[in-house]
Amino acid sequence: MDNYKKTELPEMVKITKIVYENPYVRTFFIGRKIDAQPGQFVMVWLPDLDEKPFSLSYAGNKTAITVEEKGKFTSALFKMKAGDKIGIRGPYGNGFTLKADACVVAGGCGVAPLANLIERLKNPLIIQGARSRDRIIFKGRFKGASITTDDGTAGTKGFVTDVLEAQLAKNKFSIVYTCGPEAMMKRVFEICERHGIECEASLERFMKCGFGVCGQCEADGLRVCKDGPVFPSAHLRKIKDFGSFARLKSGEKVAISDYAKWRCQ
């Protein structure tokens, strides 16, 4: 679609409230209504430091991002208080399609964009995984979530994929939505393929422009910022990098595990 007037500049908006989800994760509510599809993201600018993409964990009347403290940028964000301002531009990317009879599979911080989705779905089955009890995000935000933890300190001990397999053996779903560590999403996708169920996964790559011109976030010819970040099964089948490779800031393609380590700096 032609649009000659498209400006993409950050606007400074106030943090209105900070919710401590657990010792590692906080939700930052901002004083700006952003109409966004579940799954869309914004670029967050901290002047003099950097700018990074975050998916919206609340959209519509309340707008928020939910952030895990991992590196320099998120540490700086964690030092901020209600009333401080951050730069925001977006929303960017596509979103999840909204379908009935859905199953949502979330891993760790991947629950952020999915939470926003869950609230627009009618009675989805929710499978939420975390490493341990103290890492669970949005406790009590949605009813009836099947919780798994790697160490068994909450819910079922094990992985979200075990619960998904068990559910697919007895229930029918029209779609499985997933977001989390890429290795987990890859397994979710493979399970869906085996059961012939449509899957939508939200991918993460290092981004620069956020609006589809620089090419930095590309994965096999698809721009994660513009063609994604949510990809349907048809694309997931095509993306050879999915679960395997991602690009560093230089554009060099490396194993996804090396990429994940680099992203935590």
Partner: peptide, 20 residues
């Protein structure tokens, strides 16, 4: 970042020759 932005009359970038 920000390395690429769009203003009223065009784009402005300072990517800084990132490349592998």
């Amino acid at each position: 970042n920000p390395t690429v932005i769009a203003f009223d009359a065009g784009l402005m970038n300072a990517v800084g020759y990132s490349n592998p």
